[in-house]
Design a protein around this nucleic acid. Structure first.
Lengths: 193, 193
DNA sequence: TCAATGCTATACCGATCTGTATAGTGGGCG
DNA sequence: CGCCCACTATACAGATCGGTATAGCATTGA
């Protein structure tokens, strides 16, 4: 990718995430990237393609981020699931105050034939498969059901984080994930993180 | 509200939800409502006002729907929480395949000073307060914590429903809510609904 | 040396965006 | 009767939308 293209994708990424995809025009993207529209269209061909590469890039960086955190995590099966929540906590706190970019993009892209659609659903499939694999390490039976519960807690935490429904929802989800995996019944009085 | 205004709001409601707010223009709304733009602007004044009334109307109908379901529900505290999940199940299955309209609108409306913003956050506050009240009936201690967990499960289920991550996420969330309220430890082998 | 490449600058295209203006129609009501 | 009101029809304004065209300027590498 050329330096101009990189700046375009970087500017588009920030603007799309902060303001929404349809609210951002190509003129603004080019201007923010310090690039002419000619360059933008020479590199990407269309706004739709920029949208696709925005989501694909974010998806790729997210998977790499989680994978790296998992490699650094302990070998215990519970720790490995909690490492995913810790990764989310770090990712969101650092630079994602508006929640999951895939969920937000899906709100704007209804058409299932849109080329960005498989990227959005693909990330959710990957996350569900990841949780399933991690849970299966310790409890093969009911792994799918537990993974789905973790998925609900995780997605809910992302939304709650973006909407600021209550403080530290990702930490709360992490605690509930631990309860689930440790088989805690009525919460042994651990309290908030 | 005049008949024309009602048709405008009804058409806008459907279009905003299905296609997203920024993707729908006032010409399309007027055309779908069988009304001229003059009428539309005479009644609402601006597109922004239509957006506000769209969300306010949906919020109002949702609260009425849940309240009615709660009145029909049993007196048991667990049943009453589950009635909320059942209400979501009915609401979403009937006519909301794309998940929560407030969450979707929030993806497009970033500016916190937008007049629609308090409606969005207001509904989430209402839901959290509702869960808190319902949980407090049976278990005053840790009510807030349990309500937050229910909130995460519920929001996660809405997203999973809209994204079609796995089948029947709202039913799954309902089951986990029951486990939580009944103090089940490792799931007593109830299986899927 | 020469050609390709990555870029700037600027002007333009048709379509669509939100919003307004003008003129007129038909029914309900005091 | 005459006024108000909700509405239609059409045309238009200025801005912005995604996308294209023309021309030129550096740097790079065969």
């Amino acid at each position: 990718m050329t330096p101009g293209a990189r700046r375009v994708l970087s500017a588009a990424s920030r603007l799309f995430y902060e303001r929404g995809i349809h609210a951002v025009g190509v003129d603004l993207i080019a201007s923010e990237a310090g690039v002419t529209k000619k360059t933008l269209y020479d590199r990407f061909g269309s706004k739709e393609q920029i949208v696709v590469e925005y989501l694909a890039d974010r998806d790729e960086r997210w998977r790499a981020f989680v994978t790296e955190r998992l490699e650094q995590a302990g070998r215990g099966p519970v720790d490995r699931v909690l490492a995913v929540f810790d990764a989310s906590q770090a990712w969101m706190t650092e630079s994602s105050p508006k929640g999951c970019s895939m969920v937000n993009a899906h709100a704007e892209i209804s058409d299932p034939s849109h080329p960005a659609h498989p990227i959005i659903t693909g990330q959710k499939e990957w996350m569900l498969a990841l949780f399933t694999d991690l849970v299966r390490e310790s409890a093969p039976a009911r792994a799918e059901e537990s993974a789905r519960t973790l998925m609900l807690l995780h997605e809910g935490a992302m939304v709650a984080h973006g909407l600021r429904i209550f403080p530290d929802p990702i930490g709360h989800a992490r605690d509930r994930a631990r309860d689930l995996l440790e088989g805690a019944a009525t919460d042994g009085g651990r309290g908030a993180r």
